[in-house]
Design a protein around this nucleic acid. Sequence first.
RNA 1: GCCGCCAUCGUCUAGGGGACUAGGACGCCGCCCUCUCACGGCGGAAACCGGGGUUCGAAUCCCCGUGGCGGUACCA
Length: 445
Amino acid sequence: MPALRVRFAPSPTGNLHIGGARTALYNWLMARGGDGTLVLRIEDTDRERSTPQNVEQILDALRWLELDFDEGPISQVSRSDRHQDVLRRLLEDGHAYRSTATADDVRAFKDEHGADRGFRGEDEAQGAVRLRVPDEGATVVHDIIRGDTTFQHVHLDDPVIARADGTVLYNFAVAIDDLDSEITHVVRGEDHLSNTPKQVLVLEALGVQPPLYAHLPLLHGPDGKKLSKRHGAASVQELRDAGYLPAAVRNYLALLGWGADDDATILSTEQLVAQFDITRVQRNPARFDEQKLRWLNGRYMRELSLDELTRLLEEHTGRTGLADAVAISHEKIQTLADFWPLAGFIFDGPSDDAAAREKWLDVDGLGALGEARTALEHVDPWTVEGIEAALRGVIESRHAKPKDVFQPVRVAVAGTTVSPGIFETLSVLGREETLRRLDAALPRA
RNA sequence: GCCGCCAUCGUCUAGGGGACUAGGACGCCGCCCUCUCACGGCGGAAACCGGGGUUCGAAUCCCCGUGGCGGUACCA
Protein backbone atom coordinates (compact mmCIF):
# COMPACT_ATOMS: atom_id res chain seq x y z
CA MET A 1 0.00 0.00 0.00
CA PRO A 2 1.73 3.16 -1.19
CA ALA A 3 1.50 6.21 1.01
CA LEU A 4 -1.40 8.53 0.31
CA ARG A 5 -0.36 11.45 -1.84
CA VAL A 6 -2.84 14.06 -3.00
CA ARG A 7 -2.52 17.44 -4.63
CA PHE A 8 -4.27 20.73 -5.06
CA ALA A 9 -3.53 22.27 -8.45
CA PRO A 10 -5.22 25.63 -8.99
CA SER A 11 -4.69 27.80 -12.01
CA PRO A 12 -3.87 31.31 -10.83
CA THR A 13 -6.61 33.24 -12.58
CA GLY A 14 -7.30 35.61 -9.69
CA ASN A 15 -9.27 35.01 -6.53
CA LEU A 16 -9.54 31.51 -5.19
CA HIS A 17 -13.21 30.68 -5.63
CA ILE A 18 -15.07 28.76 -3.01
CA GLY A 19 -15.28 25.76 -5.32
CA GLY A 20 -11.50 25.73 -5.46
CA ALA A 21 -11.35 26.30 -1.73
CA ARG A 22 -13.50 23.26 -1.13
CA THR A 23 -11.31 21.17 -3.43
CA ALA A 24 -8.28 22.32 -1.46
CA LEU A 25 -10.05 21.51 1.80
CA TYR A 26 -11.05 17.99 0.74
CA ASN A 27 -7.51 17.24 -0.36
CA TRP A 28 -6.19 18.66 2.88
CA LEU A 29 -8.64 16.64 4.97
CA MET A 30 -7.67 13.47 3.13
CA ALA A 31 -3.98 14.10 3.68
CA ARG A 32 -4.31 15.09 7.31
CA GLY A 33 -6.73 12.31 8.11
CA GLY A 34 -4.77 9.56 6.42
CA ASP A 35 -1.19 10.38 7.21
CA GLY A 36 -0.82 11.56 3.64
CA THR A 37 1.11 14.21 1.78
CA LEU A 38 -0.47 17.25 0.16
CA VAL A 39 1.32 18.71 -2.84
CA LEU A 40 0.53 22.20 -4.08
CA ARG A 41 1.04 22.78 -7.77
CA ILE A 42 0.35 25.96 -9.69
CA GLU A 43 -1.08 25.32 -13.14
CA ASP A 44 0.55 28.32 -14.76
CA THR A 45 0.95 27.21 -18.35
CA ASP A 46 -1.38 29.99 -19.42
CA ARG A 47 1.15 32.80 -19.30
CA GLU A 48 -1.42 35.52 -19.83
CA ARG A 49 -3.24 34.94 -16.60
CA SER A 50 -0.51 33.48 -14.45
CA THR A 51 0.89 36.60 -12.88
CA PRO A 52 2.90 36.59 -9.65
CA GLN A 53 0.10 38.61 -8.06
CA ASN A 54 -2.43 35.95 -8.96
CA VAL A 55 -0.23 33.22 -7.55
CA GLU A 56 0.17 35.20 -4.35
CA GLN A 57 -3.59 35.54 -4.08
CA ILE A 58 -3.97 31.77 -4.11
CA LEU A 59 -1.31 31.31 -1.45
CA ASP A 60 -2.85 34.08 0.60
CA ALA A 61 -6.28 32.45 0.46
CA LEU A 62 -4.87 29.10 1.56
CA ARG A 63 -3.02 30.74 4.43
CA TRP A 64 -6.19 32.45 5.58
CA LEU A 65 -8.09 29.16 5.41
CA GLU A 66 -5.23 27.67 7.45
CA LEU A 67 -4.72 24.89 4.92
CA ASP A 68 -1.04 24.06 4.78
CA PHE A 69 0.71 21.86 2.25
CA ASP A 70 3.70 19.55 2.48
CA GLU A 71 5.34 19.97 -0.91
CA GLY A 72 5.45 22.82 -3.37
CA PRO A 73 4.26 25.14 -4.62
CA ILE A 74 5.49 23.56 -7.83
CA SER A 75 5.25 25.74 -10.89
CA GLN A 76 4.07 23.74 -13.86
CA VAL A 77 6.04 25.97 -16.20
CA SER A 78 9.23 25.20 -14.31
CA ARG A 79 8.87 21.60 -15.40
CA SER A 80 8.91 22.28 -19.12
CA ASP A 81 12.22 20.45 -19.68
CA ARG A 82 10.70 17.29 -18.33
CA HIS A 83 7.56 17.85 -20.39
CA GLN A 84 9.67 18.24 -23.51
CA ASP A 85 11.52 15.01 -22.78
CA VAL A 86 8.31 13.06 -22.49
CA LEU A 87 6.84 14.73 -25.53
CA ARG A 88 9.91 13.77 -27.59
CA ARG A 89 9.66 10.21 -26.38
CA LEU A 90 5.99 9.91 -27.37
CA LEU A 91 6.79 11.39 -30.77
CA GLU A 92 9.65 8.97 -31.29
CA ASP A 93 7.77 5.84 -30.35
CA GLY A 94 4.73 6.83 -32.39
CA HIS A 95 2.24 7.42 -29.58
CA ALA A 96 2.06 11.01 -30.73
CA TYR A 97 2.42 12.78 -34.07
CA ARG A 98 2.53 16.25 -35.53
CA SER A 99 -0.46 17.50 -37.45
CA THR A 100 -1.54 20.80 -38.96
CA ALA A 101 -5.21 19.94 -38.58
CA THR A 102 -7.12 22.84 -37.04
CA ALA A 103 -10.12 22.92 -34.75
CA ASP A 104 -12.21 23.65 -37.85
CA ASP A 105 -10.83 20.56 -39.54
CA VAL A 106 -11.82 18.46 -36.57
CA ARG A 107 -15.24 20.06 -36.49
CA ALA A 108 -15.76 19.30 -40.17
CA PHE A 109 -14.69 15.73 -39.62
CA LYS A 110 -17.14 15.36 -36.76
CA ASP A 111 -19.96 16.86 -38.77
CA GLU A 112 -19.37 14.21 -41.38
CA HIS A 113 -18.90 11.22 -39.12
CA GLY A 114 -20.98 12.12 -36.09
CA ALA A 115 -20.37 9.89 -33.12
CA ASP A 116 -19.14 7.02 -35.27
CA ARG A 117 -15.53 8.04 -35.46
CA GLY A 118 -13.18 10.21 -33.48
CA PHE A 119 -10.83 12.49 -35.36
CA ARG A 120 -7.52 10.87 -36.33
CA GLY A 121 -4.94 13.03 -38.08
CA GLU A 122 -2.10 12.24 -40.47
CA ASP A 123 1.48 12.41 -39.32
CA GLU A 124 2.69 15.50 -41.16
CA ALA A 125 5.93 15.97 -39.25
CA GLN A 126 4.91 19.52 -38.46
CA GLY A 127 2.21 21.42 -36.61
CA ALA A 128 0.71 20.71 -33.22
CA VAL A 129 1.35 17.45 -31.40
CA ARG A 130 -1.58 15.09 -31.10
CA LEU A 131 -1.81 11.97 -29.00
CA ARG A 132 -2.82 8.86 -30.91
CA VAL A 133 -6.01 7.40 -29.46
CA PRO A 134 -6.51 3.69 -30.23
CA ASP A 135 -9.38 3.09 -32.65
CA GLU A 136 -10.66 0.12 -30.74
CA GLY A 137 -11.58 -0.31 -27.13
CA ALA A 138 -12.27 2.15 -24.38
CA THR A 139 -10.62 3.97 -21.52
CA VAL A 140 -12.10 3.47 -18.09
CA VAL A 141 -11.70 6.12 -15.41
CA HIS A 142 -11.75 4.65 -11.93
CA ASP A 143 -13.38 7.16 -9.64
CA ILE A 144 -13.82 6.46 -5.95
CA ILE A 145 -16.89 8.70 -5.75
CA ARG A 146 -18.60 7.82 -9.03
CA GLY A 147 -17.40 4.33 -9.77
CA ASP A 148 -16.11 3.47 -13.23
CA THR A 149 -16.87 5.65 -16.21
CA THR A 150 -16.18 4.21 -19.64
CA PHE A 151 -15.17 6.36 -22.59
CA GLN A 152 -15.32 4.59 -25.95
CA HIS A 153 -12.31 5.41 -28.09
CA VAL A 154 -14.44 5.90 -31.19
CA HIS A 155 -15.91 8.96 -29.49
CA LEU A 156 -12.54 10.47 -28.65
CA ASP A 157 -10.62 12.74 -31.00
CA ASP A 158 -6.85 12.61 -30.97
CA PRO A 159 -6.20 15.39 -28.48
CA VAL A 160 -3.63 18.11 -29.03
CA ILE A 161 -1.08 17.78 -26.26
CA ALA A 162 1.39 20.45 -27.40
CA ARG A 163 1.14 23.56 -29.52
CA ALA A 164 3.00 23.94 -32.82
CA ASP A 165 5.61 25.97 -30.94
CA GLY A 166 6.23 22.99 -28.70
CA THR A 167 4.67 24.29 -25.49
CA VAL A 168 2.57 21.65 -23.79
CA LEU A 169 -1.11 21.77 -23.01
CA TYR A 170 -2.95 21.22 -19.78
CA ASN A 171 -4.12 17.63 -20.24
CA PHE A 172 -0.60 16.53 -20.99
CA ALA A 173 1.18 18.52 -18.31
CA VAL A 174 -1.26 17.41 -15.62
CA ALA A 175 -0.72 13.76 -16.37
CA ILE A 176 3.06 14.08 -16.28
CA ASP A 177 3.12 16.23 -13.16
CA ASP A 178 0.80 13.96 -11.23
CA LEU A 179 2.91 11.02 -12.30
CA ASP A 180 6.19 12.60 -11.23
CA SER A 181 4.71 13.76 -7.92
CA GLU A 182 3.58 10.17 -7.37
CA ILE A 183 0.04 11.32 -6.73
CA THR A 184 -2.14 8.41 -5.63
CA HIS A 185 -5.51 10.18 -5.62
CA VAL A 186 -6.47 13.00 -7.93
CA VAL A 187 -9.26 14.86 -6.14
CA ARG A 188 -10.70 17.72 -8.19
CA GLY A 189 -13.89 19.22 -9.60
CA GLU A 190 -16.24 17.27 -11.79
CA ASP A 191 -15.59 19.64 -14.67
CA HIS A 192 -12.41 17.64 -15.22
CA LEU A 193 -14.10 14.26 -15.58
CA SER A 194 -14.65 14.41 -19.33
CA ASN A 195 -11.00 15.25 -19.93
CA THR A 196 -9.68 12.54 -17.67
CA PRO A 197 -9.46 9.86 -20.39
CA LYS A 198 -7.01 12.09 -22.26
CA GLN A 199 -4.80 12.14 -19.21
CA VAL A 200 -5.16 8.42 -18.68
CA LEU A 201 -4.27 7.81 -22.32
CA VAL A 202 -1.08 9.85 -21.93
CA LEU A 203 -0.08 7.72 -18.97
CA GLU A 204 -0.94 4.51 -20.75
CA ALA A 205 1.19 5.57 -23.71
CA LEU A 206 4.03 5.82 -21.22
CA GLY A 207 3.21 2.40 -19.85
CA VAL A 208 2.33 3.57 -16.35
CA GLN A 209 -0.73 3.15 -14.16
CA PRO A 210 -3.03 6.13 -13.76
CA PRO A 211 -3.89 7.28 -10.23
CA LEU A 212 -7.30 6.86 -8.66
CA TYR A 213 -9.65 9.76 -9.25
CA ALA A 214 -12.29 11.46 -7.16
CA HIS A 215 -14.34 14.03 -9.05
CA LEU A 216 -16.20 16.33 -6.72
CA PRO A 217 -19.64 17.69 -7.51
CA LEU A 218 -19.55 21.27 -8.69
CA LEU A 219 -20.67 24.17 -6.55
CA HIS A 220 -23.44 26.42 -7.84
CA GLY A 221 -24.98 29.69 -6.75
CA PRO A 222 -28.36 29.86 -4.96
CA ASP A 223 -30.10 29.98 -8.34
CA GLY A 224 -28.44 26.80 -9.54
CA LYS A 225 -26.26 28.66 -11.99
CA LYS A 226 -22.53 28.76 -11.99
CA LEU A 227 -21.27 30.60 -8.95
CA SER A 228 -20.14 34.16 -9.60
CA LYS A 229 -19.72 37.57 -8.03
CA ARG A 230 -23.37 38.41 -8.31
CA HIS A 231 -24.11 35.67 -5.79
CA GLY A 232 -22.37 37.61 -3.05
CA ALA A 233 -19.22 36.28 -1.49
CA ALA A 234 -17.97 33.80 -4.05
CA SER A 235 -14.27 33.85 -3.33
CA VAL A 236 -12.16 33.28 -0.27
CA GLN A 237 -11.10 36.91 -0.35
CA GLU A 238 -14.72 38.04 -0.25
CA LEU A 239 -15.52 35.62 2.53
CA ARG A 240 -12.75 37.13 4.60
CA ASP A 241 -13.92 40.68 3.91
CA ALA A 242 -17.46 39.69 4.79
CA GLY A 243 -16.21 38.80 8.24
CA TYR A 244 -16.40 35.04 8.27
CA LEU A 245 -14.14 32.92 10.44
CA PRO A 246 -11.80 30.43 8.74
CA ALA A 247 -12.93 27.59 10.99
CA ALA A 248 -16.57 28.26 10.16
CA VAL A 249 -15.80 28.42 6.45
CA ARG A 250 -13.97 25.10 6.64
CA ASN A 251 -16.90 23.55 8.49
CA TYR A 252 -19.43 24.89 6.00
CA LEU A 253 -17.41 23.99 2.92
CA ALA A 254 -16.87 20.47 4.20
CA LEU A 255 -20.64 20.05 4.39
CA LEU A 256 -21.11 21.06 0.77
CA GLY A 257 -21.08 17.63 -0.78
CA TRP A 258 -20.36 15.57 2.26
CA GLY A 259 -22.06 14.62 5.51
CA ALA A 260 -20.80 12.89 8.63
CA ASP A 261 -22.13 9.45 9.55
CA ASP A 262 -24.33 10.94 12.25
CA ASP A 263 -25.37 13.88 10.10
CA ALA A 264 -23.75 16.32 12.53
CA THR A 265 -23.69 19.95 11.42
CA ILE A 266 -21.15 21.57 13.71
CA LEU A 267 -17.81 19.88 13.26
CA SER A 268 -14.51 21.21 14.49
CA THR A 269 -11.57 20.93 12.14
CA GLU A 270 -10.25 18.09 14.30
CA GLN A 271 -13.53 16.27 13.88
CA LEU A 272 -13.51 16.92 10.17
CA VAL A 273 -10.02 15.50 9.85
CA ALA A 274 -11.03 12.43 11.83
CA GLN A 275 -14.36 11.83 10.15
CA PHE A 276 -14.00 13.00 6.57
CA ASP A 277 -14.38 10.15 4.11
CA ILE A 278 -13.94 10.84 0.42
CA THR A 279 -16.01 7.79 -0.51
CA ARG A 280 -19.03 9.34 1.19
CA VAL A 281 -18.94 12.46 -0.94
CA GLN A 282 -22.16 13.29 -2.75
CA ARG A 283 -22.40 12.94 -6.52
CA ASN A 284 -24.84 15.74 -7.23
CA PRO A 285 -23.92 19.42 -7.33
CA ALA A 286 -24.45 21.59 -4.26
CA ARG A 287 -25.56 25.18 -4.00
CA PHE A 288 -23.71 27.69 -1.94
CA ASP A 289 -26.12 29.01 0.70
CA GLU A 290 -24.69 32.02 2.46
CA GLN A 291 -27.51 32.09 5.02
CA LYS A 292 -26.39 28.79 6.45
CA LEU A 293 -22.79 29.97 6.48
CA ARG A 294 -23.91 33.06 8.40
CA TRP A 295 -25.69 30.95 10.97
CA LEU A 296 -22.74 28.62 11.33
CA ASN A 297 -20.36 31.55 11.60
CA GLY A 298 -22.51 33.02 14.36
CA ARG A 299 -22.17 29.77 16.27
CA TYR A 300 -18.40 29.93 15.95
CA MET A 301 -18.34 33.60 16.94
CA ARG A 302 -20.21 32.88 20.15
CA GLU A 303 -17.68 30.20 21.02
CA LEU A 304 -14.88 32.75 20.91
CA SER A 305 -13.59 34.31 24.10
CA LEU A 306 -14.13 38.04 24.47
CA ASP A 307 -10.41 38.67 24.17
CA GLU A 308 -10.13 36.70 20.97
CA LEU A 309 -13.24 38.24 19.45
CA THR A 310 -12.05 41.72 20.37
CA ARG A 311 -8.69 41.05 18.76
CA LEU A 312 -10.37 39.86 15.55
CA LEU A 313 -12.75 42.79 15.47
CA GLU A 314 -10.01 45.33 16.04
CA GLU A 315 -8.15 43.72 13.17
CA HIS A 316 -11.23 43.73 10.98
CA THR A 317 -12.30 47.31 11.68
CA GLY A 318 -8.86 48.82 12.08
CA ARG A 319 -10.00 50.43 15.33
CA THR A 320 -8.81 49.93 18.89
CA GLY A 321 -10.35 50.03 22.33
CA LEU A 322 -13.37 47.98 21.33
CA ALA A 323 -13.42 45.56 24.26
CA ASP A 324 -16.41 47.03 26.13
CA ALA A 325 -18.47 47.42 23.00
CA VAL A 326 -17.62 43.88 21.92
CA ALA A 327 -18.70 42.52 25.28
CA ILE A 328 -22.23 43.87 24.86
CA SER A 329 -22.49 42.89 21.17
CA HIS A 330 -21.11 39.37 21.36
CA GLU A 331 -24.47 37.58 21.22
CA LYS A 332 -25.90 39.77 18.52
CA ILE A 333 -23.56 39.42 15.58
CA GLN A 334 -23.01 36.62 13.10
CA THR A 335 -19.98 37.95 11.27
CA LEU A 336 -17.16 40.31 12.06
CA ALA A 337 -18.68 42.72 9.58
CA ASP A 338 -21.90 42.87 11.61
CA PHE A 339 -20.19 44.57 14.53
CA TRP A 340 -19.66 48.09 13.31
CA PRO A 341 -23.18 48.66 11.96
CA LEU A 342 -24.50 47.54 15.35
CA ALA A 343 -22.08 49.23 17.73
CA GLY A 344 -20.13 51.78 15.73
CA PHE A 345 -22.35 54.58 17.06
CA ILE A 346 -20.70 54.15 20.44
CA PHE A 347 -17.49 55.52 18.93
CA ASP A 348 -18.65 57.61 15.99
CA GLY A 349 -21.76 59.10 17.50
CA PRO A 350 -25.42 58.45 16.67
CA SER A 351 -26.25 57.45 13.13
CA ASP A 352 -28.91 59.36 11.30
CA ASP A 353 -32.09 57.34 10.90
CA ALA A 354 -34.77 59.94 10.15
CA ALA A 355 -37.61 57.45 10.34
CA ALA A 356 -36.50 56.31 13.77
CA ARG A 357 -36.36 59.87 15.07
CA GLU A 358 -39.72 60.69 13.65
CA LYS A 359 -41.31 57.67 15.21
CA TRP A 360 -39.74 57.72 18.66
CA LEU A 361 -38.81 61.32 19.29
CA ASP A 362 -42.32 62.68 19.03
CA VAL A 363 -43.96 64.65 21.85
CA ASP A 364 -44.37 61.59 24.07
CA GLY A 365 -40.91 60.34 23.26
CA LEU A 366 -39.30 63.65 24.07
CA GLY A 367 -41.25 63.80 27.31
CA ALA A 368 -39.92 60.40 28.30
CA LEU A 369 -36.46 61.40 27.19
CA GLY A 370 -36.54 64.50 29.38
CA GLU A 371 -37.48 62.48 32.44
CA ALA A 372 -34.92 59.86 31.60
CA ARG A 373 -32.28 62.52 31.39
CA THR A 374 -33.14 63.81 34.82
CA ALA A 375 -33.25 60.33 36.34
CA LEU A 376 -29.94 59.32 34.80
CA GLU A 377 -28.23 62.44 36.00
CA HIS A 378 -28.51 61.16 39.56
CA VAL A 379 -27.49 57.55 38.99
CA ASP A 380 -24.59 56.66 41.22
CA PRO A 381 -22.64 54.54 40.73
CA TRP A 382 -22.98 54.44 36.93
CA THR A 383 -23.67 50.74 36.54
CA VAL A 384 -25.96 48.60 34.41
CA GLU A 385 -28.10 47.96 37.49
CA GLY A 386 -28.26 51.61 38.45
CA ILE A 387 -29.17 52.68 34.94
CA GLU A 388 -31.88 50.06 34.69
CA ALA A 389 -33.38 51.12 38.02
CA ALA A 390 -33.45 54.75 36.94
CA LEU A 391 -35.09 54.07 33.60
CA ARG A 392 -37.64 51.72 35.11
CA GLY A 393 -38.47 54.44 37.55
CA VAL A 394 -39.34 56.67 34.63
CA ILE A 395 -41.58 53.99 33.17
CA GLU A 396 -43.39 53.74 36.46
CA SER A 397 -43.87 57.45 37.01
CA ARG A 398 -45.15 57.93 33.45
CA HIS A 399 -47.28 54.79 33.57
CA ALA A 400 -45.66 53.98 30.24
CA LYS A 401 -44.79 50.78 28.50
CA PRO A 402 -41.11 49.87 28.73
CA LYS A 403 -40.43 50.46 25.05
CA ASP A 404 -41.95 53.94 25.24
CA VAL A 405 -39.02 54.96 27.38
CA PHE A 406 -36.28 52.64 26.12
CA GLN A 407 -36.75 53.34 22.43
CA PRO A 408 -36.54 57.14 22.67
CA VAL A 409 -33.38 56.77 24.72
CA ARG A 410 -31.99 54.29 22.22
CA VAL A 411 -32.74 56.55 19.28
CA ALA A 412 -31.20 59.49 21.12
CA VAL A 413 -27.89 57.76 21.82
CA ALA A 414 -27.66 55.40 18.82
CA GLY A 415 -29.57 57.37 16.23
CA THR A 416 -31.51 54.28 15.26
CA THR A 417 -33.80 51.60 16.67
CA VAL A 418 -31.31 48.77 16.83
CA SER A 419 -28.47 48.56 19.30
CA PRO A 420 -27.02 46.38 22.03
CA GLY A 421 -29.03 46.28 25.26
CA ILE A 422 -29.90 49.82 26.29
CA PHE A 423 -28.61 49.63 29.88
CA GLU A 424 -25.38 48.06 28.75
CA THR A 425 -25.02 50.61 25.99
CA LEU A 426 -25.43 53.57 28.36
CA SER A 427 -23.05 51.92 30.78
CA VAL A 428 -20.37 51.66 28.11
CA LEU A 429 -21.05 55.17 26.87
CA GLY A 430 -20.51 56.66 30.32
CA ARG A 431 -22.65 59.22 32.12
CA GLU A 432 -21.15 62.27 30.51
CA GLU A 433 -21.49 61.08 26.93
CA THR A 434 -24.95 59.68 27.57
CA LEU A 435 -26.24 62.96 28.96
CA ARG A 436 -24.57 64.85 26.16
CA ARG A 437 -26.39 62.74 23.56
CA LEU A 438 -29.71 63.00 25.36
CA ASP A 439 -29.37 66.76 25.56
CA ALA A 440 -28.56 66.91 21.88
CA ALA A 441 -31.79 65.06 21.11
CA LEU A 442 -33.89 67.19 23.45
CA PRO A 443 -35.29 70.52 22.23
CA ARG A 444 -33.43 73.47 23.72
CA ALA A 445 -35.02 74.46 26.97
C1' G B 1 -24.96 18.24 -32.41
C1' C B 2 -21.89 14.57 -29.97
C1' C B 3 -19.77 12.41 -25.34
C1' G B 4 -20.32 12.17 -20.15
C1' C B 5 -21.99 13.15 -15.03
C1' C B 6 -26.14 14.01 -11.89
C1' A B 7 -31.49 13.86 -9.81
C1' U B 8 -34.68 13.11 -1.49
C1' C B 9 -38.12 19.24 1.86
C1' G B 10 -36.73 26.27 -0.87
C1' U B 11 -31.19 24.91 0.45
C1' C B 12 -27.26 21.37 2.56
C1' U B 13 -28.01 16.44 3.61
C1' A B 14 -29.36 11.11 6.30
C1' G B 15 -31.02 6.93 3.67
C1' G B 16 -27.46 2.01 0.26
C1' G B 17 -34.71 -3.56 -0.77
C1' G B 18 -38.54 -4.30 4.52
C1' A B 19 -36.26 -0.35 10.70
C1' C B 20 -39.74 5.37 6.27
C1' U B 21 -46.56 7.51 8.81
C1' A B 22 -38.69 9.47 4.85
C1' G B 23 -34.65 11.68 9.96
C1' G B 24 -31.32 16.14 10.96
C1' A B 25 -29.52 21.22 9.87
C1' C B 26 -30.21 26.29 7.55
C1' G B 27 -34.21 29.16 6.02
C1' C B 28 -39.55 30.01 6.63
C1' C B 29 -44.20 30.30 9.87
C1' G B 30 -46.36 30.40 14.98
C1' C B 31 -45.71 30.68 20.29
C1' C B 32 -42.49 31.70 24.61
C1' C B 33 -38.48 34.87 26.50
C1' U B 34 -37.94 40.27 25.78
C1' C B 35 -36.02 47.39 25.95
C1' U B 36 -34.75 47.08 19.88
C1' C B 37 -32.02 43.46 17.23
C1' A B 38 -30.25 39.01 18.24
C1' C B 39 -29.52 34.61 21.34
C1' G B 40 -32.20 30.65 23.52
C1' G B 41 -36.63 27.32 24.13
C1' C B 42 -41.07 24.94 22.15
C1' G B 43 -44.21 23.71 18.01
C1' G B 44 -45.44 23.67 12.63
C1' A B 45 -45.56 23.59 7.19
C1' A B 46 -42.19 21.49 3.71
C1' A B 47 -39.18 16.33 -0.40
C1' C B 48 -38.24 10.74 -2.68
C1' C B 49 -38.56 14.46 -11.13
C1' G B 50 -42.04 11.23 -14.48
C1' G B 51 -43.03 6.41 -16.61
C1' G B 52 -41.96 1.42 -17.07
C1' G B 53 -39.71 -2.88 -15.08
C1' U B 54 -37.13 -6.55 -11.22
C1' U B 55 -39.10 -8.20 -6.37
C1' C B 56 -43.59 -10.88 -1.74
C1' G B 57 -41.77 -5.74 -0.97
C1' A B 58 -38.30 0.04 -3.90
C1' A B 59 -36.53 6.57 -1.96
C1' U B 60 -33.05 2.53 -2.33
C1' C B 61 -31.64 -2.08 -8.18
C1' C B 62 -32.40 -1.82 -13.94
C1' C B 63 -34.32 0.75 -18.45
C1' C B 64 -36.53 4.92 -20.92
C1' G B 65 -38.02 9.92 -20.70
C1' U B 66 -37.45 14.76 -18.73
C1' G B 67 -34.51 18.34 -16.47
C1' G B 68 -29.81 20.37 -14.62
C1' C B 69 -24.66 20.50 -15.19
C1' G B 70 -19.92 19.50 -17.45
C1' G B 71 -16.75 18.39 -21.59
C1' U B 72 -16.16 18.69 -26.66
C1' A B 73 -9.67 24.86 -27.49
C1' C B 74 -2.81 24.76 -30.61
C1' C B 75 -7.59 27.54 -22.35
C1' A B 76 -6.86 25.70 -17.57
